[in-house]
Design a protein around this nucleic acid. Structure first.
Lengths: 111, 111
DNA sequence: TATAAATGAAACCGAAAGGTTTCGTATTAT
DNA sequence: ATAATACGAAACCTTTCGGTTTCATTTATA
């Protein structure tokens, strides 16, 4: 399928979060906007590799890019991270209390 | 690298969450344990395909498997979802208030 | 103006992902 | 005992992923 064109915003976010380098980039950007060169120095890979990760982060709308002359500042855009957190929030009931275990037992009897 | 052997539990979770089918499986399992056949009926793919997804969910420790005779009941195990949510919680400060915007402005002046 | 810097873009590569079909094997039901 | 059920496992295929090297382009500076 076409992951980029899919109009489910959740997909773009979780796709972007799947890679450890991209998660590390997000944490870097939490400390302020960075260009691709500055970011690449923190990772053991070439600049184009980091640039590709940034593109995927941009597609998932986890960052925005601010063009400043010949520089391209990548800014963290945290709203979509909140979307991901809310998606996970659906499962909160299953770790907040012990209802989950009880539920499992009850449904086992029903089957 | 070796995603399975990596002893960073975060990686296994986010890897598992990257696929929409696997996220849907988790939501299905939130309503109770299911065997692979029951799950496969809900998706437009074959049973072995769903079985592979379940294996990845198990590797990420998002589900546990209970063998009951010839059946294999897949149970949601929500603890690692909480791990993912907490990882995202690090960024809460950036959407909770407007400090993020202020921070960006300040650091732009510093550069 | 020449040069250095910051980056995009393209071509390419091996490995991983996501799917299929086919076959084998326990376990349950008739 | 036989047949149906619920699986796992293997082989195979195509696409995506994550990385590289090379080259072109735009912007800043000596």
């Amino acid at each position: 399928m076409d992951a980029q064109t899919t109009h489910d915003p959740t997909q773009g976010v979780f796709r972007a979060l799947a890679d450890p380098t991209r998660r590390a980039i997000l944490q870097q950007l939490a400390q302020g906007p960075r260009g691709v060169n500055a970011l690449a120095q923190g990772f053991e890979m070439t600049r184009p590799a980091v640039a590709k990760h940034l593109k995927i982060l941009e597609e998932g709308r986890l960052i925005t890019v601010e063009q400043r002359g010949r520089e391209r500042l990548n800014h963290l855009q945290p709203e979509m991270l909140a979307v991901a957190q809310r998606w996970l929030g659906f499962f909160e009931a299953f770790w907040d209390d012990k209802l989950a275990d009880l539920k499992r037992e009850v449904e086992r009897d029903d089957d």
